[in-house]
């Protein structure tokens, strides 16, 4: 078990290194253009450009540039945004993180519970109209662009039906910190949560159903029935528990991606000032340091979450624990 963990750790470190190189190459060594003017932002003065060139070492070889960049990102954390009057990037991201975390966590609660219900019910009634209807709903959910769904949700809750009893409780777009008003926080986020969850509900319900249906043909499900267990217990305790393993590994990936900025579109549409919206605003100003930092941090999140998922795997699946 220790060996498995060590091997996993080595892999994680390697992937992290690879990602940092890739991000560096994408942002600072794309052929054709001078990275100096990109970092300096639009309409930078010659002095600024000169300073940036010196600060990032663009007049020196690539490996030195890479080292400088990593030092600025992770060690001294003094990567500054030139487009935004020298604001330090890393603290800015840290300030936005709780909003993104609130959004992703709430959506996750919704999508996990709804998709487990949908997938299980569909599998229990497989090949009936119930199954087909639920799976079609899931497919529709998969097919809706999330930013557009957000607009539709805004249209309904902020304009068309805002004055009816149904949606009069929805506050205007924007974020209300939990510490300020827990209820306000909840109200402000309910609609974004649901919007973000729709895609994942479709995806997870369909995958869970497929897993459950294939598990149902397994011998151990027959054993469980032959023991005289109720159909519900067989499905949930034996079938669902076994299918949950792949479900959880998927969840880890997706959740990490959302925290790392994958919820960008949702944040933009609902005006939530999270990491994603910060990145979006940086795009308008061509504020490369900030975008680079957010991509880098999100990738780190994903890799760490992946490693965490593998550890959870060890707990959940006794077969993996023994290295089989």
């Amino acid at each position: 078990m220790l060996l498995v963990l060590l091997k996993r750790l080595g892999q994680t470190v390697f992937v992290l290194f690879g990602i940092s190189v890739m991000v560096f190459l994408v942002f600072l060594a794309t052929p054709g253009t001078d990275p100096t003017s990109r970092i300096a932002g639009k309409n930078a003065s010659p002095q600024t450009i000169e300073r940036v060139r010196h600060e990032y070492g663009f007049d020196r070889p690539l490996p030195v540039q890479y080292a400088t960049m990593m030092k600025k990102l992770f060690i001294t954390q003094d990567l500054a945004s030139y487009a935004n009057r020298g604001e330090l990037v890393v603290p800015e991201l840290a300030k936005a993180a709780p909003i993104t975390l609130s959004l992703a966590a709430g959506a996750a609660v919704i999508w996990v519970s709804v998709s487990i219900c949908m997938g299980t019910v569909a599998a229990a009634f497989r090949n009936t109209w119930i199954d087909r209807t639920l799976m079609m709903i899931g497919l529709v959910g998969l097919s809706i662009p999330v930013f557009w769904l957000g607009q539709v949700a805004n249209l309904i809750t902020q304009a068309r039906f805002h004055d009816t009893w149904l949606f009069s409780w929805v506050p205007g777009p924007g974020y209300i910190p939990f510490s300020e008003s827990p209820l306000g926080w909840f109200r402000a986020l309910v609609i974004p949560w649901c919007t973000l969850a729709v895609l994942f509900i479709g995806l997870y319900a369909r995958i869970l159903r497929a897993d459950l249906v294939s598990v149902m043909d397994e011998d151990f499900m027959r054993t469980a029935r032959a023991k005289g267990l109720s159909p519900l217990r067989v499905l949930l305790v034996h079938g669902l528990r076994t299918s949950m393993i792949s479900f959880i590994s998927m969840f880890g990936m997706d959740f990490a991606q959302l925290i790392g900025g994958g919820a960008l579109l949702t944040e933009v549409v609902f005006g939530l000032g999270g990491v994603g919206r910060l990145t979006y605003q940086a795009m308008g100003a061509l504020d490369l340091p900030l975008i680079m930092a957010s991509v880098m941090y999100s990738a780190v999140f994903v890799v760490l979450a992946n490693a965490l998922v593998d550890v959870i795997y060890l707990v959940l699946d006794p077969r993996v624990r023994d290295g089989r």
Binding site: F27, G260, T279, I291, V295, S298, V303
Partner: peptide, 17 residues
């Protein structure tokens, strides 16, 4: 390594540069 970066974020990075 490529898959560790969220797809949309990766596409956004490439587009923005």
């Amino acid at each position: 390594i490529m898959w560790a970066v969220p797809v949309y974020l990766f596409a956004i990075s490439l587009s923005i540069v």
